[in-house]
């Protein structure tokens, strides 16, 4: 799974679709191997062998944020004529993507439910985070990020940048959140703000979580 860099995304938009919202492509990797893939919305590339059914359940914006960028891995790509796209077109028909979920902020996203075993993280400059109740639940309307997105953050300063936090102090307290399946969330991408680039995944627990969902806190380096 790759996120199209802006240049490739623009180039794809100049070419015809293979079906509504997607293009079947042949990719030449940097090691000169060729692979077939589908690019959704000129943004998200899934290789032939990857499970396209993930688009049925996962939030598109979240997948996009978590995908590696194509710039380091792709040498070139071309959209295949529909006559050559065959099996992949059928695969896409079986797995319609979650369109309508744009890459905007969480507050604008469609509410969805967490899946079993999902883990989230929350970064804070405060060890005594007031959004976390003594029983280990989150208050309604508390923000976090996915555990996967959190792997991009190694220091408190990086958390401030990735989640565009207005408090310039390092957000070096990292909380782990393991909500029950079917916890209501809205997720999206952090917009640039407060002179920070943003770009991380943000998840709002719109109705909070059950007790015990916050399973730990550790600290990461400030710098």
């Amino acid at each position: 799974m790759l996120r199209m860099d802006p240049t490739r995304s623009r180039a794809l938009l100049e070419q015809p679709e293979s079906g509504m919202g997607y293009q079947v492509v042949e990719v030449t990797m940097t090691d000169f191997k060729t692979r077939r893939a589908v690019v959704y919305n000129a943004e998200l590339l899934l290789f032939d062998e990857e499970p396209h059914a993930i688009l049925k359940t996962a939030n598109f914006a979240r997948l996009l944020a978590e995908a590696r960028t194509s710039s380091d891995e792709i040498k070139s790509l071309r959209v295949l004529p529909r006559s050559m796209a065959g099996e992949l077109v059928e695969a896409v028909k079986e797995s319609p993507p979650a369109y309508g979920r744009g890459a905007g902020p969480a507050r604008d996203a469609t509410p969805e439910k967490t899946r079993a075993g999902e883990v989230f993280k929350r970064f804070s400059a405060f060890a005594n985070d007031r959004r976390i109740l003594p029983d280990g639940s989150l208050r309604p309307g508390t923000y976090g990020t996915t555990a996967k997105d959190a792997t991009n953050v190694r220091t408190g300063r990086e958390a401030v940048a990735r989640y565009a936090l207005p408090d310039p102090r390092p957000a070096s307290n990292r909380f782990t959140i393991e909500p029950r399946e079917d916890t209501m969330v809205q997720s999206g991408i952090v917009e640039p703000a407060y002179s920070q680039p943003g770009g991380g995944v943000e998840v709002s627990f719109t109705a909070g979580t059950q007790p015990g969902a916050v399973t730990g806190r550790d600290t990461i380096p400030d710098e």
Binding site: D129, R130, P140, G144, Y163, L165, D167, V190, E202, S204
Partner: peptide, 11 residues
């Protein structure tokens, strides 16, 4: 304030 939703992570 703790009864009200956040605007972003921690604020």
């Amino acid at each position: 304030l703790v009864q009200l939703p956040e605007s972003g992570m921690g604020y």
